[in-house]
Amino acid sequence: MTTTAPRRPTIRRRVPSTAAALVLGLGLAPALAACSAGGGGGSGDTSAADAPAPAMGRSAVGGSAVDSAGVPGADAFRADGVAAKQAAEPAPDGTQQALISTGTVSLSSKDVAAARFDVQKVVDKYAGEISDEQTDTDDDGHVATSHLVIRIPSADFEKAMTDLKGVADLEYASAKSEDVTTQVIDTRSRLKVQRASIARITTLLARAQNLRDIVLIESQLSRRQATLDSLERRAAYLADQTSQSTITVDIEKASVGAAHKKHVDHTGFVPGLKSGWHGLTAIAVAVATAAGAALPFTVVLLLLGLMAWPVLRTIRRRHPGDPGGPDLAVPTEG
């Protein structure tokens, strides 16, 4: 009798797909780059986008490929970490200081239109531009106020502020600068890392054939692209603010009386005579105003008195002895 040995059950182990493992490995790279960029504060000298594409092992199809080290996606993870580290290293030649400069100038002038024209000359002198303007006129159609927002190259900020202060009578001026060098370096480093990561994920997406891998890779690609768009907008804002300074100019029409009030002498005979004459005129105007206000009431009271006078005379004629009533006869005895 032949005895047959029992067959051992076959255990199938599911090996994760290389594409999914690579995506998971790539997911840790931006975090590593962010930490390195925040701590170092520099920008990479060599672009991470030039890093070689990660090794795919045998194949990215079928979900059974394993690299030479026996760990799914290990080469891709190492390549992504090296590229992130290179992008986060500070530039050997250094980075220029980035400043955001803003200023405010308030002016007063008898001729606001002429002062506005002089401000335009300053803007043209430094190759600037007026990004916003608001002008108001008075009842006669003359320019009364003018509000301008000027963009001047940052290198000429101090010179432009000095020239604007001399356009008309200076009322107020202020200037400040904010150092954003660290933000510029950090944003630049993150952009390099993000672009390199998107390039590698795009390569994986082109090689993947499994539906599950494609969905996973596209999800990662969408997230990286949204982050890249945000970083590009921030980089554009910093570049605009650091290359062009902003100066706000307000021009108001100065009053002639207020401008010369401090130069008028109020002492002496002639100023005293003028002051007395003005006082007398003011009193005469006040008396005339009071008389004019009381005149209507006086006329009404006079008319009422004339109408009541005949009635009063009739009453007095009827009772000449006692205005209160007729006399009563009192009989006497005897």
Rank of each mutant, 00 (worst) to 15 (best):
S230V: 12
S230P: 03
S230W: 15
L231S: 00
L231T: 00
E232T: 08
R233K: 14
R234A: 14
A235E: 02
A235T: 01
A235W: 03
A236E: 13
A236R: 07
A236L: 13
L238N: 00
L238P: 03
A239E: 15
D240V: 07
Q241M: 05
Q241T: 07
S243W: 00
S243H: 05
Q244D: 14
Q244I: 04
T246S: 15
T246W: 11
T246L: 15
T248Y: 00
T248W: 00
V249M: 04
D250N: 09
D250Y: 03
D250M: 08
I251D: 00
I251V: 07
I251Y: 00
I251R: 00
I251C: 00
E252I: 05
K253V: 08
K253L: 06
K253F: 09
K253W: 04
A254F: 09
S255Y: 10
S255A: 09
G257R: 12
K261C: 12
K261P: 02
K261S: 12
K262S: 14
H263E: 15
H263W: 04
V264N: 02
V264R: 02
V264F: 10
D265C: 08
D265P: 06
H266G: 08
H266D: 14
H266Q: 15
T267G: 00
F269D: 13
F269Q: 12
V270F: 15
V270S: 14
P271F: 01
P271Q: 01
G272Q: 12
G272E: 11
G272R: 14
G272S: 15
L273W: 01
K274P: 00
K274Y: 03
K274W: 04
S275F: 04
S275H: 04
S275D: 04
S275N: 06
S275I: 03
G276A: 14
G276C: 09
W277K: 15
W277M: 13
W277D: 14
H278S: 14
H278F: 04
H278E: 13
H278M: 04
G279C: 05
L280M: 13
T281Y: 05
A282P: 03
I283R: 11
I283P: 07
A284W: 07
V285T: 13
A286E: 06
V287W: 05
V287Q: 08
V287I: 05
A288L: 09
A288Q: 02
A288M: 05
T289E: 04
T289A: 13
T289C: 08
T289D: 05
T289I: 04
A290Q: 12
A291T: 03
A291Q: 03
A291K: 04
G292N: 07
A294C: 12
A294R: 09
A294V: 13
A294N: 12
L295I: 06
L295K: 08
P296C: 03
F297K: 12
F297L: 11
